[in-house]
Design a binder for these strands. Structure first.
Lengths: 355, 355
DNA sequence: TTTTTTTACGCAATCGTTGCCGAGAACGAT
DNA sequence: ATCGTTCTCGGCAACGATTGCGTAAAAAAA
C-alpha cells in the first residue's frame, strides 16, 4: 500500500551511506557542499519526510500530547481545545483528544491508553464521576508530565490552570441579588469536583455578605453533570415544588444551564417572571435563547493555551520539576434577559459586571 | 524522566532472550508453560506494556486515524466525531483530530502533517474554501486510505458517506411552502461545496414542483461558511432590503443558521411573522431559541460511525481496493416555531416531516 | 619527501519489537 | 548405536533515523 521514501532509498539511489544522507539533510558541516546539494535536491524531488515514528523511537518522545475532557460537544471544551491546538501546533506537537463522557471508567482507560501510547504529556479536566486519582498519581509519580485545567484535584502536585470559580459564583449570585432576587437556588455538578466546590463557596459567600440565610434545600447536585437529563429534571422539579419556592436559579455548568432552561420551559414556568436563571456557559447561542441567558463566561481559549504552555514547559524541562504553579484566570458575567430586574423587568446591560 | 519497562528488562531480569520473552508474552506454543508463566507473571507485576511506537515502526502502521474537519465547536462535527471515536476505539485505533477552520491552507497543512505523521488513514470533510484537491489526490494515488464524509468531492474515487442533502433541501423548502410561504430565499455556503450544491438543487426542485419561479437574487452564498459574520450579515441585509422581500429563508448550515437568526434579530425582524427561517442544524439548543428553530437534522453520529467503518475496511484490506461506495443517510425535518403557518400562526408538529 | 591536519564519508550501535533460522537436548523409532 | 523428530530457546536481522567513532584520501605543513 502506501510507501513513503526513506533515507535508505536516497542513500541507495545516490550511492551514499545512510549516515551521510542523514547528515546532509541536517546540514552538517562535515559533508561537502556538492553532496549536500545533491542529497537535498533528491529529497525534495521525491518529497522525503523523516519517518516520525522512527524518530519517536530514537528520541523516546512522540511530540504529541494527550487531552482528556468529558466531551468536546461542549463549547467550553471545544474552545479550550482550540487554545490547546493553537499552542501545540506552533510548538510542533500533535494533539490527541479523548472523551470521558463524565465516566470514571472511561477516564481511566483513556489515560492509560494515551500514556502507553507514548504521548509526551497529558492535559486533563477531570470527569464528574471521578473521585479517586490513582490513575493520575501512578503516572505523575513516575515523572510523567500532567497539567490539569478547569476541573482539578488537590491530590496531585502539578501545574494547574483554572478560572476564578469562586468569584464567578460570587458575582453571578450578587448579580441576582442586585436584580432583586433573594431566594436563590444553586444547581451544580458532582460535589467533589473542584469547580462545583468553588462556585458553591462563591454562591454562599455572596448570600452571607447580603445577610441572606443559606437554605440547604436550595442546593442541588447532579452527579453526572447533566449528562443524564432525568437526574437534572428531578432536581429542577424538586426545587420548584418546594413550599418556599426559589425565585432564581444559579446553575454551575454549560450543560446544566441549558438543560435547566429546557426543564423550566417544559414545566411551563416563565423566565425570569416565575424564576430567574443565571448559568455558567461559553456557548454563543445563549444570546439567542428564549429568554437570552445571563451567563458567566470563562476564558476557555486562554485556559487551553496557558495549560498547553505549562505542559510543554514540563515536557521540555531537562531536570525533574518540583515547583508547580496554579494559574487563575478571570471570569466575566454577561447580563441578559433571564435575570432581568425583578421590579422593573429590565436588564441593565450597561451594568455588565466584569470580574 | 518517565521510563517504562521493556521486553529487554524482562529478559535480563529473568535470564532469557528478548525473543523468548516476546513469544512467551504472545502465548506462542514453542515456549514451555513454566517459562511462559514466569514471564507473564513478571510482566504483570511490573505492568509491562508493549511500546506502541516500536510496534508501529515494525508493522509500518500506527493504529491511528486522522480526522480533518472545519471545526469541532459545531454540533454536527462533534457528534460525527463521537461516532468516529466509538467505532475507532472498539477497533483499536486512535483518533487524531485537526481543524481547518474553513481555510484551504490549514487543510493542506493538516493533511500533510497527519499523513507524514503516519496515520493509517484519513477521514475528511472538506473545508469551505477548498476548491482544489491535489493534496488529497497525491495521497490517494499512492494508495493512502481516505474516506470523505459530509462534504465530499467528485474528483477523487474513494468511499464517501453523506446525508441526503438534496432531499433535506427539498423537504425543508416544501415544508415552508406547505406553511404558506412562497418567497423563499436560500442562504448557503461556498457554491463549490457538495453540500451547498445538493441542498440548492433540492431547494430549486421543490420550488419548481410547486410552480414557484426561481429568483436568483434570493440565493446567497457565504464563501466562508459563516466563519466571517460580516459576510453573512451583508447577505441577510441584502435579502431583506430587496424590493420584493422574501418571506422565508432556508439556510444550509449550522453556523449559517444560527448567525442568520442573530442577524435577523439584530435588524429587528420578527420571526416568523416578518420572515420565517428553516435551517440545517444539529444543535439541541435550537429547540430553546427564540423562536425555536425548525431545522433539518443530519444523522451525524451514524455518519461518523459509517465513515470510520469504511476507512478501517480500507486500511485493513490486503489488496488495493478499486470498488468504492457512496453511502447516503437520511435527514429529518424537525418542525418548530420559526416556520409557523403563515395563516394560522401555529406550527403543526404532528405533521413532522420525516424524510 | 614525510608528517600532520583536514575533509568527507562509512560502520555500527541504538531505540523496542518480532520473524526467521538454527542450536542443543530429549525422546522414540529403527 | 544411529537417525530423525520434537520441544525450547537464543542469535541475528530488520523496521527508519541519528550519532559517536574510525579511517581513507586529500590537503597542508614540516
Amino acid at each position: 500500500m502506501y510507501e513513503a521514501i526513506t533515507i535508505k532509498d536516497i542513500a541507495k539511489a545516490l550511492g551514499l551511506s545512510t549516515s551521510t544522507v542523514s547528515r546532509a539533510l541536517r546540514g552538517s558541516h562535515e559533508i561537502s557542499s556538492e553532496t549536500k546539494k545533491m542529497v537535498i535536491e533528491y529529497a525534495e524531488q521525491f518529497n522525503y519526510r523523516p519517518n516520525p515514528i522512527a524518530l519517536s523511537l530514537k528520541e523516546r518522545r512522540s511530540h504529541s500530547i494527550g487531552v482528556v475532557v468529558c466531551e468536546i460537544a461542549n463549547n467550553f471544551f471545544s474552545q479550550a481545545i482550540n487554545g490547546i491546538e493553537s499552542v501545540a501546533y506552533n510548538r510542533g506537537y500533535h494533539v490527541i483528544i479523548s472523551q470521558s463522557h463524565e465516566s470514571y471508567d472511561r477516564e481511566v482507560v483513556n489515560v492509560e491508553h494515551l500514556a502507553s501510547r507514548s504521548v509526551d504529556g497529558l492535559l486533563v479536566s477531570i470527569s464528574a464521576e471521578t473521585d479517586r486519582f490513582e490513575h493520575f498519581k501512578n503516572l505523575h509519580d513516575k515523572g510523567f508530565p500532567i497539567v490539569f485545567f478547569d476541573r482539578i484535584t488537590d491530590g496531585i502536585e502539578t501545574h494547574k490552570v483554572v478560572a476564578d470559580n469562586y468569584k464567578g459564583g460570587y458575582d453571578a449570585t450578587q448579580h441576582l441579588i442586585d436584580a432583586g432576587y433573594k431566594k436563590i437556588a444553586h444547581l451544580t455538578s458532582a460535589s467533589h469536583l473542584s469547580i462545583s466546590r468553588e462556585r458553591l463557596e462563591g454562591y454562599k459567600a455572596a448570600l452571607r455578605d447580603n445577610n441572606i440565610t443559606i437554605n440547604e434545600s436550595y442546593i442541588k447536585n447532579c452527579n453526572h453533570g447533566g449528562m443524564i437529563y432525568k437526574e437534572l429534571e428531578d432536581a429542577v422539579k424538586n426545587l420548584v415544588n418546594l413550599k418556599d419556592k426559589p425565585d432564581a436559579i444559579f446553575s454551575a455548568g454549560d450543560r446544566l444551564t441549558v438543560s435547566c432552561l429546557a426543564a423550566l420551559k417544559a414545566i411551563g414556568l416563565k423566565i425570569p417572571d416565575d424564576i430567574a436563571l443565571v448559568g455558567f456557559s461559553n456557548s454563543p447561542l445563549v444570546e439567542l435563547m428564549n429568554p437570552s441567558l445571563t451567563s458567566v463566561k470563562q476564558p476557555a481559549f486562554e485556559m487551553g493555551q496557558t495549560a498547553t504552555e505549562l505542559l510543554i514547559k514540563l515536557i521540555e524541562s531537562k531536570r525533574a520539576v518540583t515547583e508547580f504553579e496554579t494559574i487563575v484566570l478571570q471570569t466575566e458575567v454577561i447580563v441578559r434577559d433571564s435575570s432581568a430586574d425583578k421590579i422593573t423587568g429590565k436588564n441593565n446591560k450597561s451594568k455588565k459586571a466584569v470580574s
